[in-house]
Structures are given as C-alpha cells and as structure tokens.
Simulated assay, not measured.
Amino acid sequence: MKVEAWIFIITGIFLLLVSPAYWVITGDWTGTSALTMATLLALMVALYLGFHAAKMEPRPEDRKDAEIADGAGELGFFPPYSWWPLWCGSTLAVIVFGTAMQEWWLVILGFTLGAVALSGWIFEYYRGEHAH
C-alpha cells in the first residue's frame, strides 16, 4: 500500500502546484475551487493509505522477495450479475423526472419503488440463487 500512498502524494503535490497557477492564469474561482478540493481529497487518500501501510503486513505484491504462490488462494467475494442497480437507477430517474416536472405524486411513487429496489439490492444475497 506504500506505492498507492506515494501515487496519491505525487498527485496531491501536482495539484497543489497547479491550483495557484490556474488561478493566476484564468482568475476563475470555480476551477480553482475544484482543483483545491481535488488536492485536499488526494492528500486525504494518501494520508489514509499511509497510515494503513504502516500498520499492516506487506501484501505479496508489495514484497520484493515474494513468490507467485504467496498470492494464491481466495481473493474475496465478487458478486455475480445483479438486476437491482438497474431498478435503483430507474427509480432515481423517476424521482428526478417527477421533481423536474413538479409532479409530486411521481416523486412519492419513485421513493416508494426506490425503497423496494434498494431493499432488494441490499438483501439479494440472503435468498435465491446466490444466497449465502
């Protein structure tokens, strides 16, 4: 994780140098604010990764003396296909459309269907084909 931390540190330093230069060249508050926030976010991620890199054992890909077999085994749980994100996105589209058209009954319907879709997405691994 030290490599990842260094990537974000370098990105943060780059953005730290670019932000004032952008302000001097353009005088644009919007872009300068966005670059400043991107700088802070990159440095925040670098700080997080740096703390975790100091506390945890090096992963096989971080060690120079690691063998290929050191990385063998289960890597984690990767979910199969799911239709629930489609329904969650569709209900969000209904909510936004209802808000734009000022049809509040459509917004209420979207929130109701959205609660059902979000519950289905959260609990999809508790029943059915992919239950644990």
Rank of each mutant, 00 (worst) to 15 (best):
M1A: 14
K2L: 14
V3L: 15
I7G: 07
I9P: 01
I10Q: 06
I10D: 08
I10A: 14
T11Q: 13
L15W: 04
L16A: 15
L17M: 08
V18Y: 06
V18S: 03
A21E: 09
Y22F: 13
Y22R: 09
W23P: 00
V24N: 07
V24F: 11
V24H: 05
T26Y: 10
T26P: 01
G27D: 03
G27E: 03
G27P: 03
W29H: 07
T30N: 08
T30R: 04
T32Q: 06
S33V: 14
S33H: 05
A34T: 09
L35Q: 03
M37R: 09
M37E: 10
T39S: 10
T39K: 01
T39Y: 01
L40H: 03
L40I: 15
L40P: 00
A42C: 13
A42W: 08
A46S: 10
L47F: 14
Y48A: 11
G50F: 07
A54T: 05
K55M: 09
K55A: 11
M56S: 12
M56T: 15
M56N: 12
E57Y: 01
R59C: 04
P60D: 02
P60L: 00
R63N: 02
R63G: 02
R63Y: 01
D65M: 01
A66S: 15
E67Y: 11
E67D: 13
E67R: 15
I68H: 05
A69G: 05
A72Q: 09
A72H: 09
G73E: 05
E74R: 12
E74C: 01
P80K: 14
Y81V: 10
Y81S: 10
W83Q: 14
W83F: 12
W84H: 10
P85M: 02
P85G: 07
L86T: 12
W87C: 09
C88R: 07
C88W: 00
G89P: 01
G89H: 03
G89S: 05
S90T: 14
S90D: 03
S90A: 14
T91I: 08
T91V: 12
L92E: 08
A93T: 13
V94M: 07
V94Q: 09
V94R: 00
V96M: 08
V96R: 06
G98T: 00
T99D: 04
T99F: 12
A100W: 14
Q102T: 09
Q102S: 11
Q102K: 15
E103G: 01
E103C: 06
W105S: 14
I108N: 04
L109Y: 12
G110P: 04
F111A: 06
F111P: 00
F111G: 09
F111H: 06
T112E: 06
T112D: 04
L113W: 05
L113F: 15
L113I: 07
L113R: 03
G114M: 08
A115R: 08
A115T: 15
L118H: 06
S119E: 03
S119N: 13
I122Y: 10
I122V: 10
E124A: 04
Y125H: 13
Y126T: 11
G128L: 02
G128H: 05
E129L: 09
A131R: 15
